[in-house]
Amino acid sequence: MALVNTPIKPFKATAFKEGKFIEVTDETLKGKWSVVVFYPADFTFVCPTELEDLADNYAEFQKLGVEVYSVSTDTHFSHKAWHDTSAAIGKIKYAMIGDPTWEVTRNFDVLRDGQGLADRGTFIIDPQGVIQGVEVTAEGIGRDAKELLRKVKAAIYVANHPGEVCPAKWKEGEKTLAPSLDLVGKI
């Protein structure tokens, strides 16, 4: 999975967002920062906790100009039904992409062989449509939206400040590093 620093592949899918079905393509993701979060299936256990956490933090992503998309291999109809019946999923205002053809899931290399389900994958995509961050975890390991938000802020910072990098645990406003020969062996 060598997807970091590669452009996203073309795709076209239908999503459920705020009571409507909308078309989402690779072009939709360009022009702003995006986060694409894959999860195994609707009506499951860890997935709604993660998606609710994203919903609870969605306004923070929006303040940064970042759009969030969740994706599973379920249909957009299933996403609507889940949204209408689950209090946790009912909070979601971001697009829930249905991928029953597996096109999007394959393009991001998170389709589980022989299962038709997506791995728990997270992708940070820059405004040019280039993948800047990838994280894939086992099915039982839920993600944290605040940690994802921290990583997105770091990716945006690095993109806007060439020659600087964000060290471990970096938070917005903290000191960054400027890699140079002078730093070698001093950290």
Score class of each variant (00 low, 15 high):
residue 147 E to M: 05
residue 56 D to T: 13
residue 15 A to L: 10
residue 68 V to N: 04
residue 4 V to I: 15
residue 26 D to C: 06
residue 10 P to R: 14
residue 167 P to Y: 13
residue 178 A to I: 12
residue 136 V to N: 03
residue 150 R to S: 14
residue 95 A to M: 01
residue 157 Y to T: 10
residue 32 K to G: 08
residue 14 T to W: 08
residue 41 A to T: 05
residue 27 E to F: 07
residue 146 K to N: 07
residue 14 T to E: 15
residue 15 A to M: 06
residue 54 L to Y: 15
residue 35 V to E: 04
residue 31 G to T: 04
residue 121 G to V: 03
residue 65 G to W: 10
residue 96 M to W: 07
residue 97 I to C: 09
residue 66 V to D: 00
residue 26 D to E: 13
residue 182 D to E: 14
residue 181 L to V: 10
residue 44 T to M: 11
residue 127 P to R: 02
residue 175 K to T: 12
residue 134 V to C: 01
residue 67 E to A: 09
residue 77 F to I: 09
residue 47 C to T: 08
residue 116 G to V: 08
residue 144 D to E: 08
residue 99 D to V: 13
residue 4 V to F: 11
residue 23 E to G: 11
residue 3 L to W: 06
residue 145 A to D: 06
residue 170 W to R: 05
residue 95 A to K: 00
residue 82 W to I: 00
residue 45 F to T: 11
residue 163 G to Y: 14
residue 111 L to F: 11
residue 89 I to S: 02
residue 33 W to K: 10
residue 20 K to C: 03
residue 18 E to A: 10
residue 119 D to F: 08
residue 55 A to D: 09
residue 24 V to F: 08
residue 156 I to C: 11
residue 123 F to H: 02
residue 4 V to G: 12
residue 121 G to H: 00
residue 159 A to E: 13
residue 23 E to V: 15
residue 77 F to H: 10
residue 59 A to G: 09
residue 178 A to E: 06
residue 108 F to A: 11
residue 88 A to Q: 11
residue 17 K to P: 00
residue 20 K to N: 12
residue 55 A to W: 13
residue 137 T to Q: 15
residue 105 T to I: 11
residue 98 G to M: 05
residue 8 I to K: 00
residue 138 A to S: 06
residue 160 N to A: 14
residue 15 A to K: 03
residue 65 G to R: 12
residue 11 F to V: 10
residue 140 G to A: 15
residue 186 K to V: 12
residue 121 G to Q: 01
residue 134 V to Q: 04
residue 20 K to E: 11
residue 131 I to L: 07
residue 50 E to W: 02
residue 83 H to P: 00
residue 149 L to V: 01
residue 170 W to C: 13
residue 6 T to Q: 14
residue 171 K to L: 13
residue 174 E to T: 10
residue 61 F to H: 09
residue 82 W to Q: 01
residue 115 Q to Y: 03
residue 53 D to M: 13
residue 115 Q to P: 00
residue 12 K to R: 12
residue 87 A to F: 02
residue 109 D to L: 05
residue 41 A to Y: 03
residue 6 T to P: 10
residue 40 P to K: 14
residue 25 T to S: 09
residue 64 L to I: 09
residue 24 V to Q: 01
residue 45 F to M: 12
residue 179 P to T: 04
residue 82 W to N: 01
residue 74 D to I: 00
residue 41 A to R: 07
residue 92 I to Q: 04
residue 101 T to I: 10
residue 100 P to C: 04
residue 104 V to M: 07
residue 22 I to Y: 12
residue 144 D to S: 15
residue 141 I to F: 14
residue 15 A to R: 02
residue 182 D to T: 12
residue 90 G to I: 02
residue 132 Q to F: 09
residue 10 P to M: 11
residue 123 F to G: 02
residue 91 K to S: 11
residue 96 M to Y: 03
residue 72 S to I: 01
residue 69 Y to Q: 01
residue 37 V to Y: 15
residue 183 L to N: 08
residue 157 Y to N: 07
residue 109 D to R: 04
residue 51 L to M: 13
